[in-house]
Design a binder for these strands. Structure first.
Length: 112
DNA sequence: CTCTTGACTGAGG
DNA sequence: GCCTCAGCCAAGA
């Protein structure tokens, strides 16, 4: 597997797919892990194209733990439903105990 | 080619 | 902590 051959989007998907159950991460954390810390927006942009794929986009939020992308899911609270189903408490689009459920790919995948 | 948009982030007040 | 501004960069018109 040569990451260089993968598109930026594909790289994002690869990381997001590895987010453990009941955990979440931020766009910036993913971007930084991919060596594109300045391209956090591209991560979100990639998520926009992640529909129809095995990508748990609901586990990716912004640095504040806010569900900024919930409007891209079906309905108005699907993203929150999915997270709460995994044991992640969400209130007013804001993930509670964010620091506790936060999952940093640059740490968990440091050997990847 | 240029311009706009955006599921973002960090710095400054 | 909040709000605002600027930088970021890929994709589409």
């Amino acid at each position: 597997m040569k990451p260089e051959t993968l598109n930026f989007f594909d790289k994002v998907y690869g990381v997001v797919k590895q987010i453990p159950y009941g955990r979440v991460t931020s766009y910036g954390a993913i971007a930084k892990y991919l060596g594109a810390a300045r391209s956090a927006r591209m991560v979100g942009y990639a998520m926009n194209n992640a529909h129809g794929k095995d990508v748990p986009a609901h586990r990716v939020v912004n640095r504040k733990g806010l569900l900024t992308g919930k409007h891209h899911f079906e309905g108005t609270n699907l993203m929150q439903q999915l997270l709460e189903n995994e044991g992640v408490l969400v209130l007013e689009n804001q993930i509670q105990n964010f620091e506790t459920v936060f999952w940093d790919p640059s740490i968990a995948l440091q050997k990847f």
